[in-house]
Nucleic acid binder design. Sequence first.
DNA 1: TATAATTACTACAAGGCAGCTAGGATATGG
DNA 2: CCATATCCTAGCTGCCTTGTAGTAATTATA
Lengths: 143, 143
Amino acid sequence: MKITTKSRYAIRSIFALVLLGGDERPVTLTQIAEHEDISRKYLEQIFIKLKKSKIVEGSRGAQGGYILAKPANMITLKEVIYAMDGPVSVSDCTNESVCGNFDHCGINWLWSGLKKTVDNYLENITIYDLKRQATGGKDVNLS
Amino acid sequence: MKITTKSRYAIRSIFALVLLGGDERPVTLTQIAEHEDISRKYLEQIFIKLKKSKIVEGSRGAQGGYILAKPANMITLKEVIYAMDGPVSVSDCTNESVCGNFDHCGINWLWSGLKKTVDNYLENITIYDLKRQATGGKDVNLS
DNA sequence: TATAATTACTACAAGGCAGCTAGGATATGG
DNA sequence: CCATATCCTAGCTGCCTTGTAGTAATTATA
């Protein structure tokens, strides 16, 4: 029942991207890697996924880097986590293709209910919310 | 972000226990294993944990088996899952002992909020609720 | 047009852990 | 005493997360 560290890294990274000005000009992975103390090589994989999900845009070459593909308040945590690990899957028994016994199963409503609950929570928090929260205190790091 | 199959098995097993009369007389693991098509050896481990958490009571020897330790409507899913895997941990960053950067972290409120949401969902569903739901349809199996 | 910067892509290795199996110890009703 | 069950401990196995590494492709800039 864990959010993968990949997803947490992704959230932290986007947050750092915003802090470093990524809503205006490209920020390099090296900058983010240093700021968050995450392996740059690992960040590459994360950002490729973020790019595929249209959360960030990459520009290659000198003076390149990544920039937000849309306003921070339009990027939900659910979206980011989805980009990393696919839809939050609370149990394999939420869809017929995997379950086998789906039609006669007496508790799949339970898992889909839980999934809905989690999704709802993650849907209603955006990167902008993180920033707003963080600016309350000084010297803030994520982890 | 998954409920472990151990937890799901546990929930199914207690449900089966109730169906097989485990609120009145001992039901053997062999019965439950057959009913749910789960390895009996695996069930043993699950029920030892359930016993330690005072969810079921075991009686050894011939005519032994397991019986509910309290009414089905007093057994929440949170309790069962806790018995299997410990507290639902959405991220290691919900307590200071593991995180290191806990005090200066800008997003731990996020994970504790998620944990609270999940806990709340699981707290409000009991084994009795499963039974009530299931009796709506006929020929019900869990999975 | 050369060069340095930087993303894009692929492969794979190491470690942890969930999921399961196995064997024997212990208790108990008949 | 024996069949029936729970109780307890160890260990295997395969997958998945977490990374590392190398190389190709692209681009601003001098």
